[in-house]
Design a protein around this nucleic acid. Sequence first.
DNA 1: TCGCAAATTAATAGCTTTATTAAATAATAT
DNA 2: ATATTATTTAATAAAGCTATTAATTTGCGA
Lengths: 207, 207
Amino acid sequence: MTNQAAGPSFEQTILKTAEALFLEKGYALTSTTEIAKNAGCNQALVHYYFRTKEKLFEAIFEKKAKLFFSALLKIDDSDIPFREKLKRKIETHFDILKANPKLPFLLLNEFTTNPGRLRTLKEKLGELPVQVFEVLDKELQQEAGQGRIRPLSVMDLAITMVSLNVVVFLARPMLDGLGVITEEDYNHWLEFRKRENTRIILGSLNL
Amino acid sequence: MTNQAAGPSFEQTILKTAEALFLEKGYALTSTTEIAKNAGCNQALVHYYFRTKEKLFEAIFEKKAKLFFSALLKIDDSDIPFREKLKRKIETHFDILKANPKLPFLLLNEFTTNPGRLRTLKEKLGELPVQVFEVLDKELQQEAGQGRIRPLSVMDLAITMVSLNVVVFLARPMLDGLGVITEEDYNHWLEFRKRENTRIILGSLNL
DNA sequence: TCGCAAATTAATAGCTTTATTAAATAATAT
DNA sequence: ATATTATTTAATAAAGCTATTAATTTGCGA
C-alpha cells in the first residue's frame, strides 16, 4: 500500500497531522513518533519527507504566523472613516482567530521559548511591518490633530487590540476546564465578544 | 560539603532554581538535570528531596497560581464607589504581574497543555471563586440598575481586565525580539500601560 | 513483464530524560 | 569516639526521542 487507500499522499497527511499536533501542544511536546502514528505511517517516513522535525515545523509555522499577522499588516486605503477602518481590522483579525483558535497559543509558545523563530519571521516579513506602522501612525496623528480621537501610539492601539482579541481564544481551555461555559454557548459568546472588543477599542479612542 | 558554604540548604536552592526555570520555560522544557546543574548539586538530590519532577513542580505551581488570582479573588468591601474599587483591583492585579512578569506564561502554558492542573487548582480554591463572583455580580447589577454603567456580566468584565493586564507581559519576549522597545523604556511603558488599562476598562463601563 | 525509481518499513545508533539504588560523606547525639 | 542518621554522589536501568541506513515493497514506463 503506497498510502491510505489512494487518498491524499502521506506527505500531505503528515503535514496536516503535524499541524494539528503542533497547534495542540507546541513544538517541544510533539514527537515525530506521535505524528507518524496519527498519520498512520512509519516514523521514518516523516523524516524521509521532511528530514528533520525542525524543518517540518518551519514548513507549518511560517504560514501560520503570517496568517495571524495578515489582518494587522494589511494597509487599508479605502475611502472610509478611520473608525470604520479600525473596526474592520479588529473584526477581520478576530475572524481569523475564530477560524484558527489555537493559533495564538502556538505563536506565543514558540516566540516565548524560542527567540530564533521571531528573528526568522522578522526577516521573512521584511519592510512590511514598518510601512504599515507608518501609515497607521499618520492616520492616528491626523485624527488626533483634528480632535476626533485622543493622542495614541500605534503600538498601544495594537497591543490593546491584540490583547482583547487573543485572550478570548487563549482562555478557551480554562473556560472549558472550569466548566464556566458550555460548548455551544461558547460560539455565541465569541460573536458577542467580537462586538464587545470593537466597542471597547473604539470607545478607548474617545477624548 | 553539605551545601553551598553553609548558605541556604540545597532543598531551598533547588526549589528556587526550579521556580526560575519553570517560569522561564515551563514544565516540559525543564529537566531535573538542568535544575540540579543550576542549583550546583547532583541530579539525584533533586529526587531525594522531591521524589519526582511532578511533585517538585506542584510545590511551586499552586503557590504561583494563587498569587495570580489573589487580586481577582479578593472581596473588597470597603466603602468606596464601585469604579474606584474596580480601579484598585485592576492596578493591584497589574502590580502583581509586574512583580512576577513570567507568571502569565507559566499559567497559560500549563493550563493549556495539562488540563489536570486546572482541576487540581479548582479543588484547592474551593468555593471562593463562586462567592467572589456573586458579590461582584450583585455590585454590577446594582450599578447598572441605577444607570451608572451599562449592563455587563462579571465574566466579560474579568476577561477584559485580564486580557489587557496579561498581554503586556506575555508580549514581552516579542517586543524584545522585534527591538520595538528598549529595556529601560519598557519599565516606563509598563506604568503607562497600567493607567491605560484602567482607563480603557473604566471607560468601557459607560452607557 | 522487467527494471528502475519512488515510497515505505524495520532496525538501530546515539542522546537525553526520569527515577532508583547502593555507596560515600558529613553531621549529630550519646 | 562511635554509632546513627541525614545528606550527597556515582552509577545505572528503563524509556522515549531524533535521525540515519539498509532492506523491502510498490508504482509505472518501456
